[in-house]
Write a protein that binds this DNA or RNA. Structure first.
Length: 429
DNA sequence: TCTGGGGTCCTAGGACCC
DNA sequence: TCTGGGGTCCTAGGACCC
């Protein structure tokens, strides 16, 4: 599109298509294991703790999203549900394949999450529903992942359209809501808590004020909304009215924080094990920093006992590095000092984590006059370690991370990492 | 017995300055 | 010496998302 068309482009109504992978993690497992077709499948969170993905068959059994696995143990057993630990390497790789496929349909695309993307379909001179169906067919054929497409003049309406595409048999995987005229009846059937940006707290407040449906909210008094729910509320109302407040974000935003945390496979009561765990998180966080070309000036370390017991102990410390760093050795050094201050004898710790913040681009680090570290040397060392680890199935570890690691996260039912490990490729019969 | 992880944005309120 | 008030910056916590 030439420069002379710019004014037209801005005046032109925007059209968003939200492409959402169905039951993404469960579908990934299925894509490599055809025997799972038609069977109930669930995927568990870290530590095999909660249900984080369910195939339609599993949903039909009444297995809720996010419920602890032990609570539905019986249902899982009695129905021969296929249960998997999460396999993030596999899901990330499958996500990349889906996104790459989607990018062939339009260059104007925002990868919104691991399993969702917004596409800009403004200016397409074809039936958008037909185009949506073509997207579904292609993604399924090229990746094995089923997707649904919701189309609307704002992201919020595209989200609602996608919900309908998933639930309505008539829609058959694609719903176009760009025709505002027919919207009222549809919005009247959407409860407020199903609207994007309306969470549980907001939903309760809205309902107390008699606002039960998306249509009620669309017609709410904007000043009252602003007063009670701030600008986020106002944006949602406008979006429901067809005025776009959330543009397509094509460039991934610069990261503002990097976090690594894990629940332990079993409770930890020794300070040494706590230190080993946190050293491991530092190692992972350092990799993430360097991957993004960033360095951190602040590090927060926290530890906690189980959040489901009385007298929970939670504590955190934040330290500032004299010079922003991405050196794992420095991260570990800082974290171990924090742990010394956070540890309390007698508590059973269930989880620890670190958060890196005040991130800066690594080539814009403010030097410190009194800095004695050889930063060029440490950077070369980190590069060497990252290079080795990217090629090794069994990565180099820092001594501080410990060897046995009995507290490690549980993954008792992980499938093979079909696409990212040579030793776990799917066998050909 | 068993209950995930990683992010962002907004707002209110305090500190501080003029 | 006493005093008001406005602006800005920062942070912690809440809420939400997937």
């Amino acid at each position: 599109m030439g420069g002379s068309d710019r004014r037209y482009t801005q005046a032109m109504k925007e059209i968003f298509a939200l492409v959402d992978c169905n039951n993404f993690y469960a579908s990934c497992e299925r894509a490599f294991n055809p025997k799972l077709e038609g069977r109930p499948v669930v995927v568990l969170s870290n530590n095999d703790g909660c249900i984080v993905a369910r195939s339609n068959e599993a949903k039909a059994l009444g297995i809720g999203m996010g419920v602890p696995a032990f609570e539905v143990e019986k249902i899982l057993e009695e129905n021969n549900v296929e249960v998997f630990s999460s396999n993030y390497a596999l899901y990330a790789d499958m996500s990349a394949r889906v996104m790459k496929t989607l990018s062939t349909f339009t260059p104007d695309m925002e990868v919104y999450s691991i399993d969702e993307a917004f596409l800009n379909l403004a200016g397409f001179n074809c039936s958008l529903t037909d185009y949506g169906r073509k997207i579904c067919r292609t993604v399924k054929r090229w990746t094995g992942i089923p997707v649904t497409v919701g189309i609307g003049p704002t992201k919020t309406l595209a989200k609602i359209a996608n919900r309908i595409a998933k639930h309505s048999a008539k829609a058959d995987g694609v719903k176009d809501l760009t025709d505002i005229g027919s919207l009222n009846g549809i919005l009247a059937a959407i409860p407020v808590e199903k609207i994007w940006t309306v969470g549980i707290k907001t939903a309760i407040k809205l309902k107390r004020a008699g606002i039960e449906t998306a249509l009620n909210l669309q017609r709410a008094d904007i000043n009252w909304i602003r007063q009670k729910f701030g600008v986020v509320g106002v944006r949602t109302v406008y979006e429901l009215r067809g005025m776009s407040c959330y543009p397509l974000e094509q460039n991934p935003p610069v990261k503002k924080s990097i976090a690594v945390s894990r629940s332990f496979g079993r409770p930890v009561d020794s300070v040494d094990e706590l230190k080993e765990a946190v050293a491991g998180y530092c190692s992972r966080a350092g990799e993430k920093l360097r991957q993004h070309g960033l360095a951190a000036a602040l590090m927060t370390v926290y530890v906690t006992t189980s959040r489901f017991i009385k007298n929970r102990y939670f504590n955190s410390r934040t330290i500032e590095f004299p010079v922003a760093t991405s050196d794992t050795k420095e991260l570990i050094g800082g974290a171990l000092l924090c742990i010394d201050g956070l540890y309390r004898r007698g508590f059973l710790f269930k989880k620890a984590g670190i958060v890196l913040s005040s991130l800066v681009s690594e080539n814009r680090i403010q030097p410190n006059l009194f800095d004695s570290a050889d930063r060029a040397r440490s950077r070369r060392l980190m590069q060497a370690i990252d290079a080795v680890n990217s090629r090794l199935n069994c990565p180099l570890r820092w001594a501080a991370e410990g060897l046995n690691r009995p507290w490690k996260v549980k993954f008792n039912r992980r499938s093979h990492r079909y696409t990212t490990r040579w030793d776990e490729l799917p066998p050909v019969a």
